[in-house]
Design a protein around this nucleic acid. Structure first.
Lengths: 206, 206
DNA sequence: GTAATAAACGGAGGCGCCTCCGTTTTAGTG
DNA sequence: CACTAAAACGGAGGCGCCTCCGTTTATTAC
């Protein structure tokens, strides 16, 4: 899901600081990341690296050459997913009216966080160890949100007296809420509620 | 080092919530903790559990029965060390004039932090995962410090217009300072400086 | 095409983690 | 003491981590 836009971004990012990989190396690397996404999704962030190598059809040595530590691999996977989430903002904005785009993106945000819930502890380690990663992520996500909010404000589908950071604040509650079984449903409701509030008093009558 | 006072405290703490261990079990458990202290000190918090078991002269199974996860063992070791640090406050207070006791305790605090420096990341994980541990520690350490400060203020060996939380604040800088090679020396100097400031303007002339 | 060489591959091997379960020890009871 | 049940022991075994190095492959030069 959603691999093309991030692939482009990755290419760009790598071109900056590294020599081009040999064809086979590039192929294997991509393969590994792809497989890692599913393995981490299935088994959590502690999923076996040997399984990842096996499923990708490469030796464990190859995995370690590309990603010297588990954290390296986790970081790449994580960045790729954040990238996909942000890219989705652009796509949604093209296909839907701007208020709908905003709402759908927030629901997607909830889904995204949901998959990260179980991994909370391990992810927190990676995120605190690597503070660049944290701030990059935060920056990208809030930029994506800002565009959606501003577009919706601009064409009057949501009220004008809020800005992106208000909305981010509201979403922040979702992130820090306790990890209960009902979390996901509650969060979905919360997003709807938030949207109702945002639509209420919009310039354009619905 | 400094095992008796904490042993007493441990006994008390355990009596509260657990049945007494069989003699051999108690012996092995104590042994394991003792060895774990040195192994963690030598090899860091990632030191091999099998080595700990080996050095303690027990099977790996025994270690795991007593401490189901590495974190359990780390927690016990950590609590014991904090306990020792706090107990030292009482001992120093008996053997030295109260300002000297305070100074020496702070130097010891620096030594203690120094051994934790390398373990920062792993320890942070344990401390954020287990917030009770964090607040317990904080509480105990600040209580120990409070007693020393209050005694020194009371008998006029340090000035009267400061309290324990001021001093703790000053020490806080030590804790959060970056982990450079000169860290330890700088911290020692900082403690001396702090003491000079505290002695300056004390009621009793030195 | 072929040769040369730098790059990449992959898996064996050594070590640590953790579980499981047959064996041993302890603490009660008569 | 002797016996017994409960508790504790310990290490074999299965799995994952990671390194190291002999083998294979892509690329470059001719």
């Amino acid at each position: 899901m959603a691999s093309e836009p991030s692939a482009i971004a990755e290419q760009k990012a790598e071109a900056v600081d590294a020599k081009p990989l040999r064809a086979d190396a590039r192929r294997n690397r991509d393969r590994l990341v792809e497989v890692a996404v599913s393995v981490f999704a299935e088994r959590g962030i502690d999923g076996s690296l040997e399984e990842i190598a096996r499923r990708a059809g490469v030796g464990i040595g190859t995995l370690y050459r590309h990603f010297p530590t588990r954290e390296h691999l986790v970081e790449v996977v994580y960045r790729r997913e954040v990238e996909a989430l942000c890219a989705a903002a652009g796509e949604l904005a093209q296909k839907h009216p701007s208020d709908v785009a905003l709402e759908q993106w927030m629901q997607r945000f909830v889904d995204y966080i949901a998959t990260k819930r179980g991994l909370a502890t391990s992810l927190r380690i990676v995120l605190t160890t690597n503070s660049t990663l944290f701030s990059d992520t935060f920056g990208r996500v809030s930029q994506a949100l800002r565009r959606l909010v501003e577009a919706a404000v601009a064409d009057g589908t949501i009220r004008g007296d809020v800005d992106a950071s208000d909305v981010l604040h509201a979403l922040g509650g979702i992130y820090s809420a306790p990890d209960t079984p009902e979390w996901r449903d509650r969060s979905r409701r919360l997003v709807k509620l938030l949207m109702d509030g945002l639509r209420f008093g919009a310039v354009k009558a619905q």
